[in-house]
Amino acid sequence: MTVAGDVVLQVEDLHKSFGSTEVLKGIDLSVRRGERIAILGSSGSGKSTLLRCMNVLEMPTRGRLILDGEAVGKPAAGGATRYREAELNRLRARVGMVFQQFNLFPHMTALENVMEGPLSVLGRPKAEARRTAQRHLERVGLGGKADAHPARLSGGQQQRVAIARALAMDPEVLLFDEPTSSLDPELVGEVLGVINDLSEDGRTMLLVTHELGFAYHFATRILFLHEGRILEDGPPEQVLKSPREERTRRFLDRFTAFRF
């Protein structure tokens, strides 16, 4: 099912260089409300960098972001954009992120991790933050682990808490940066299951992943990145089963040899 809502996040002519290496070479992308986009590509293709540029954890070298019709930042010399800190904070509060390494706050319990954003960024009252945090933990199946510190949780459980933490901000767009890549194989399923369950909310999500099978079922749209450019952009059926480009075919062959 393709949800054709209005454009919620737009990326225009995005470039990113690290030193002399250009990782992103001009990305244009319109994300519509309710879309679930899986971003595929081999390592070094720039897929994680693209995701990290979308909430400016990585500062784009050139190009701009438009969230809900409003351009973020002010144009600067050379096509770059300058961002004020307060503006970035507002953007990030509306664009959630789940990291490959979970990055839970080790000095806080699972519940406190989930409460932190609503409490200190959105300024919610403590009792309310606690209630919604508990609800989000239950949503990811960890209602019973509210008082556990991250060190006491398995990798899969930590990542589920991290998802609850991102959800608690009620973001308009939720970014997943290889959320299962640092998990033991037997823990991958529980995390993908939680992500899949989020589909029913109709929330806009972008997912960088190597799990082609999951991408096929989960995504409404698939991007294939190669050397910093979008090579394919279409529904899963088309990109995964009949890709236009030879590059994409070769990439998929490496997986399908075992998977399908």
Partner: peptide, 9 residues
């Protein structure tokens, strides 16, 4: 990064 991603100053 996790703090920034939540929108913390």
């Amino acid at each position: 990064e996790a703090g920034r991603a939540l929108g913390m100053g």
